[in-house]
Design a protein around this nucleic acid. Structure first.
Lengths: 256, 256
DNA sequence: GCCCAACTGGGACGGATGACCCAGTCGACG
DNA sequence: CGTCGACTGGGTCATCCGTCCCAGTTGGGC
């Protein structure tokens, strides 16, 4: 193996380690397997890292910060195809637009999961490893905090694009969204049922959209919407409260 | 170690293995650690099981069938305290009662998780181990099928108790419920935030209850259920949406 | 009570693993 | 163009792993 600065060697080893973990799990990611994957010699490992656990700690850090999205909203479409445009034309309510946008975003996130299931599995496994390793205390917590932060940004943008406002604090909704994506991902990893995942995604989009309020009348799609912040839905705010999605559907009661 | 029939030895080793896995993970559950936990000698292990993997396979089977609930509904209260009774008195809509019942059930499930987090972690880890082990193909799939079956039973009972009906096939809702509990559990294992979990549980209960329909009228007491009944058409009706949570909106599910 | 099969105990083995060491080699800088 | 320090390669070590073996021991059916 040619010479190379330590930094790059470290980066290559981290990438190789993630690759091995994807394939064989954390327990299969031995020092030898990692250097083999990276095409290096064993001694290079302990030149770049103090120990195997040292690498694992840094790997979790890197990998968590590589996670880009929890909800992958499509690019804003300023043209007539956008949900906002449809709302403007009165074809949908803003809440419907929000729900559709969320569903699109979840579906796009899920497409990434489906395209690379090994990666997701490795992420879960690293989280559990972090939970069990005392020297990594707090890593899993920060990991989920980051997920929530990503979710906050996406939810905020989705609301802005459709002119809706969230009726609960954003970080609470972010936790709900993260729980949903985690659950959907986990179930799909176990059973591989695409159709079921799609249905759960639709459910998740409905559930989240139900936590939003439509634009307050004539207000242009800007800020300054009356947040129901003071009173988070304590007892009397099931979906039937403000006006959200409770209009009685066409009574097509489906038999179990 | 005294004599004992093989069956009991196997059972004790399985219990010890789960204990060790809870504490040290699957990779920490070495044959020596397991027999040590069980207070046996190493040779007894291979007398009772063909190999370590043999034990692991059987352990997943046992443990999955020990899982009793995904949603732990409180015992039915025939007296005046029950949600159904409140509905009968017209204090709540049946949907509110359903939501409360679901939230109670989720909270009770979560109490068990909180009381024994190591158990849950071990379950997740076993699932992932099964996913990666070719000789355990299908095990994870059956595991989630069982979870869904448990969820179906609970959802059915919750609807029956409150007189509501589910507007989507039960097994779809079961998948949604399982995803939610998984997500809630996973997040709590990572951050240990009880309050956040409680809020997400409330959200989950709302989301699920939104998939139900109240009893088809015939309710003797005054109406309290849906507010937007047969909406007078032609009017502004800002929140009026075509059919918000209609079962399987066919045009909104496609992927990019 | 006897006897045989079911069971136990202790040890052993080949292989893998994390960690390490030191003699060499390469390349950037002067 | 030489040199010195950063980097590499191969070998080594103690430990732990799953598995196996075989000599003993136990207990229940006759």
């Amino acid at each position: 193996m040619a010479h190379m600065p330590v930094a790059e060697r470290r980066a290559r080893l981290l990438a190789a380690a993630f690759e091995v973990i994807s394939r064989a799990g954390v327990s299969g990611a031995t020092t030898r397997a990692i250097v083999d994957e990276a095409g290096m010699k064993l001694a290079s490992f302990h030149y770049a890292f103090e120990s195997r656990e040292d690498l694992l700690v840094q790997l979790v850090d890197v990998v968590v910060h590589q996670q880009e999205v929890v909800l992958d909203l499509p690019d804003a479409e300023p043209a007539q195809g956008s949900p906002a445009a449809a709302v403007a034309r009165g074809e949908h309510s803003a809440l419907t637009a929000l729900r559709q946008l969320l569903e699109r975003g979840l579906a796009r996130y899920f497409d990434e999961v489906r395209a690379n299931p090994l990666r997701e599995r490795a992420m879960f496994e690293l989280t559990q490893y972090a939970l069990r390793t005392t020297s990594m205390a707090g890593v899993a917590e920060r990991q989920y905090e980051r997920y929530r932060n990503l979710a906050v940004a996406s939810l905020q943008e989705a609301a802005m694009r459709t002119g809706c406002t969230w009726r609960r604090p954003l970080d609470e909704l972010a936790a709900d969204l993260v729980a949903l994506t985690d659950g959907i991902t986990l179930a799909w990893l176990a059973d591989g049922d695409d159709a079921r995942a799609a249905r759960t995604i639709a459910f998740a989009a409905r559930a989240l959209a139900a936590e939003a309020a439509p634009p307050a009348e004539a207000a242009p799609p800007a800020e300054a919407a009356p947040r129901a912040e003071a009173a988070p839905p304590g007892e009397a705010a099931p979906p039937g409260e403000a006006a959200p999605p409770t209009p009685t559907p066409p009574t097509t009661t489906e038999a179990p």
